[in-house]
Computed example of a mutant assay.
Amino acid sequence: MKYILITVTLILIFFTLTKKKTDIQALATQDTILAFGDSLTYGYGTTLTKSYPSLLSSLTGLKVINAGVNGETSQEGVARLPRLLEDPSIKLMILCFGGNDILQKRSMSSLKKNLKTMIQMAKEKNIQVLLISVPNISLFGLSALALYEEVSDEEKVPLISGILANILGNPTLKSDQIHPNALGYKIMAEKIYESLKENGWLN
């Protein structure tokens, strides 16, 4: 019985990993990546040429649209996204929202709902999604928010977690308490690039 359970478990793991892999369509040279978010996407704290979307474009050789807006909440993102998704060349959206919701003490259930809505909007346009988690920022430091794992699982999209917490937890990598500096954004771009390769978007 023990060996049967082990065999069944291994089969389930195999099919889960296979399904996750086959759901991802590799990006072609003519495809565009939409980097959608707030000031962390815009590159607040450095120049636009040193923002993570700009650096990611150099790493991938692909067009990466910097659609970050300073100070924007996830609800505002929901309202802004549909127009951006009309670009037929966009095949992947990198979604990074939550910082301003947290700072403004907005409902975390609303943040989760808005993230799911934005992912579903992209899916309706056959655009793939990579989600980036934002840490909770408080007087006690940085802590993970379970809602990003929940959104990733429920919407079946890959998640990069911990990257911003690691950067913002290092004084040498940030321009202020909530934004990376040029080196921080460089590390962010490199980690995203690695994730694109690991998930099969890039060869």
Rank of each mutant, 00 (worst) to 15 (best):
L115I: 06
Q30P: 06
I132V: 10
V78H: 04
E149R: 06
Q120H: 15
A165D: 08
A146D: 15
S57I: 04
D31I: 09
L103N: 13
M118T: 05
T172G: 11
V64T: 02
L17S: 11
P158V: 09
G99T: 15
K20V: 07
Q177C: 10
I65A: 03
L168K: 00
L164T: 01
P88Q: 12
Q104F: 10
I4R: 12
G43Q: 01
E198N: 15
L81M: 07
L81K: 02
M93W: 07
G200Q: 03
L115A: 03
I90R: 00
E76R: 07
D31G: 08
D87L: 06
K63F: 07
V134I: 14
M118V: 08
S133E: 07
L40Q: 03
L62T: 01
L196V: 11
S51P: 00
K191I: 10
Q128F: 02
R106I: 09
Q128V: 05
L164K: 00
L139N: 13
G68D: 01
M108G: 12
I187K: 12
Q75L: 10
A182R: 03
N100Y: 05
K197E: 12
I24C: 09
D101A: 05
T49G: 14
T9W: 09
S107N: 10
T9E: 09
P88N: 11
N199I: 13
H179P: 05
P135W: 02
A144L: 14
T73Y: 04
A35S: 13
L62D: 01
K63W: 08
T172W: 14
L84G: 02
L84H: 04
D23L: 11
F36K: 01
I187Y: 10
W201D: 00
S161D: 15
I11G: 09
M1W: 15
T9F: 11
E76P: 01
L115F: 05
A26W: 07
S74D: 06
T9N: 11
L111Q: 01
M118C: 08
L103H: 12
E72D: 11
T7V: 14
F97S: 03
Q104W: 11
L85T: 02
A26C: 10
H179G: 02
M121S: 08
S74E: 03
S39T: 06
L139V: 14
M1F: 15
N170M: 12
L34Q: 03
L142C: 07
N114D: 13
K113W: 09
A122M: 07
E155P: 02
K156Q: 15
Q104K: 12
Y148L: 06
K116T: 15
I187N: 10
T172E: 14
I102M: 09
G37W: 00
L159A: 05
V8F: 11
V69E: 03
P88W: 10
A67P: 05
L62K: 01
T117M: 14
E72S: 08
M118N: 04
L34V: 09
S110R: 13
I94Q: 00
G200T: 03
S143K: 13
E154V: 09
A182P: 01
T49Y: 08
L95D: 00
